[in-house]
Design a protein around this nucleic acid. Structure first.
Length: 357
DNA sequence: AATACGTGGAC
DNA sequence: TGTCCAAGTAT
């Protein structure tokens, strides 16, 4: 699995630190704080999500929930609008649960070590290590996509990084680097520097080895195998699904339905969804609503990480809907309240097109 | 081990 | 257009 080169490990961490302090990122909103709450929030938002996407969400979330106590005191329905559009909504649900655990079991303070932090919901090994490194200076190595790119290239680690054996090798290497570093290692700069390097000079497409501080002993550069590392994942074909969504409008309101957890969009409020137009028509009939074919809107496709969804929206306007009470997981929502409602991205797109035009 | 879980940026 | 994948975790 390892390449032939014998890369220098003794000076690795110090080199990263020096480069970070000189050329790394400095102005990100979650840097320059040791508040575990702010660090934790940023790490959760940044899971599988690009920095630029997170920025606005981070500021809005912190303004509404400035402390872990504020977050714990809120309801999940109050939290979800601040996550809507970011994706992977289990992160928000776990974040909320985690805040309550911290307030109930840890007296409102984060656990003092990465091992204990990792026991909390939504926090895995890498996120726990990042929080402990940034908040406490603990020498706990992280292993995210950036670090995987730097390490597989520098140390010549072949094999899909998501496969257990490769992953194990990466973690052991990361630990070995920290163990080989001097006792006064600046853990904040090291951790940040690794990610900065992975997202800049050691980016996936065309790595800029000429500018990289690790180039002299980097396996991939020395062997000209940058394009092979990290070993790409084997791609799995993604399926396609189809659905009909109902925009049922009664005067100034529409009918929304809260999605179950776990599951796609769990906790968000979405349009009533059916496998096909016929099922939608039957449901409308049960409410005494006729569905004319001309109510069908232009379809759209929404791409998830694991499948593509073809959505056929139907806009039904009726002020004489027979239902007295909506189902427990349904609600009539005023059009004025839509901007503050936790809507899935494609649903927001549909409703914006309909009611903001 | 393999799959579920969102959305958008980059090329 | 399609493909890859991003500061991953839970099951």
């Amino acid at each position: 699995m390892l390449g032939n080169a014998q890369p220098a490990i003794a000076a690795f961490a110090a080199t990263v630190v020096q480069w970070q302090l000189r050329a790394g990122r400095r102005g990100l909103p979650w840097q320059h704080t040791r508040d575990p709450y702010r660090i934790w929030l940023s790490e959760i938002m940044l899971q599988q999500t690009q920095v630029g996407t997170v920025m606005g969400y981070y500021e809005r979330f912190l303004a509404r929930f400035p402390t872990v106590q504020d977050l714990a005191a809120a309801t999940q329905d109050e939290v979800m609008p601040y996550w809507a559009g970011l994706g992977y909504y289990a992160r928000a649900r776990n974040l909320h649960r985690c805040a309550q655990e911290i307030c109930q079991n840890w007296n409102g303070s984060f656990p003092p070590s990465a091992d204990e932090i990792m026991q909390l919901p939504g926090i895995g090994r890498s996120t726990a290590a990042a929080i402990a490194a940034f908040a406490y200076g603990q020498r706990s190595p992280i292993m995210d996509g950036n670090v995987k790119r730097v390490f597989t290239r520098y140390f010549g680690i072949f094999g899909d990084p998501s496969v257990r054996a490769t992953e194990k090798c990466l973690w052991e290497t990361a630990q070995a680097v920290v163990d080989a570093a001097p006792p006064d290692l600046d853990m904040t700069a090291y951790t940040q520097g690794l990610m900065d390097l992975g997202s800049s000079h050691c980016a996936r497409g065309r790595p800029d080895c000429a500018a990289c501080p690790l180039a002299t002993h980097c396996y991939a550069r020395l062997e000209s195998r940058q394009a092979e590392l990290p070993t790409p994942k084997k791609k799995k074909q993604s399926g396609q699904r189809q659905c009909a969504m109902l925009i049922l409008q009664k005067e100034n309101t529409i009918l929304l339905e809260q999605r179950p957890s776990p599951g796609i969009w769990g906790g968000l409020w979405s349009l009533p969804q059916f496998d096909d137009a016929e099922s939608l028509r039957i449901a409308c009939g049960n409410m005494g609503v006729e569905v004319a074919t001309e109510r069908k809107m232009a379809g759209l496709q929404h791409v998830f990480s694991h499948f593509k969804l073809h959505i056929e929206p139907w806009h039904i306007v009726s002020d004489q809907i027979e239902t007295t009470e909506p189902r427990p997981n349904q609600a009539w929502v005023s059009l004025n309240d839509l901007p503050a409602t936790a809507l899935p991205a494609p649903v927001k797109k549909i409703l914006d097109g309909l009611f903001l035009a």
